[in-house]
């Protein structure tokens, strides 16, 4: 199972990011979230969601989903990573991968909290 995001439904509220941060830190913080809203191209209204997984980065763009294997091309600071996870406080590749909220009684917290049901749990691993 993995997390899927329909970026066109997304309203960029960051609730998923904070829920994931809570899962990591038992407090409110954004530094450790593995689901992050990319919102650095504010003047263009171009935003979506990036999820760090064990071996890939899922980039949910308005025009569609892209899954990038984490490898040489996606080293921290390389163009692909930099472009989508841009300016997040901590590079995406240095964050823990999504564990589907393992150990949390709520199940995947980002799925549960998204107000517009943009996030879902889908079949298929990496």
């Amino acid at each position: 199972m993995r997390i899927d995001v329909d970026a066109l439904k997304c309203i960029g509220c960051m609730a998923c990011e904070m829920a994931c941060g809570y899962h990591r830190d038992d407090a409110f913080a954004l530094l450790a979230s593995c689901i992050v809203v990319y919102r650095a191209r504010e003047k263009k209204d171009y935003f979506g969601v990036v999820i760090k997984e064990e071996e890939s980065l899922t980039i949910a763009r308005p025009e569609g989903l892209e899954i990038k294997r984490i490898g040489v091309a996606e080293e921290p600071g390389s163009t692909g990573q930099k472009k989508e996870a841009d300016a997040s406080a901590k590079p995406m590749l240095l964050r823990e991968p999504c564990d589907l909220c393992d150990g949390m009684k709520y199940g995947p917290m980002c799925v549960k909290i998204c107000p517009v049901n943009a996030i879902s749990l889908v079949e298929g691993g990496e």
Binding site: I11, G12, C13, M14, A15, M18, D45, F47
Partner: peptide, 9 residues
């Protein structure tokens, strides 16, 4: 597109 302020449904 429409967008929300932080954690606003």
């Amino acid at each position: 597109r429409n967008s929300a302020c932080y954690n606003t449904p």
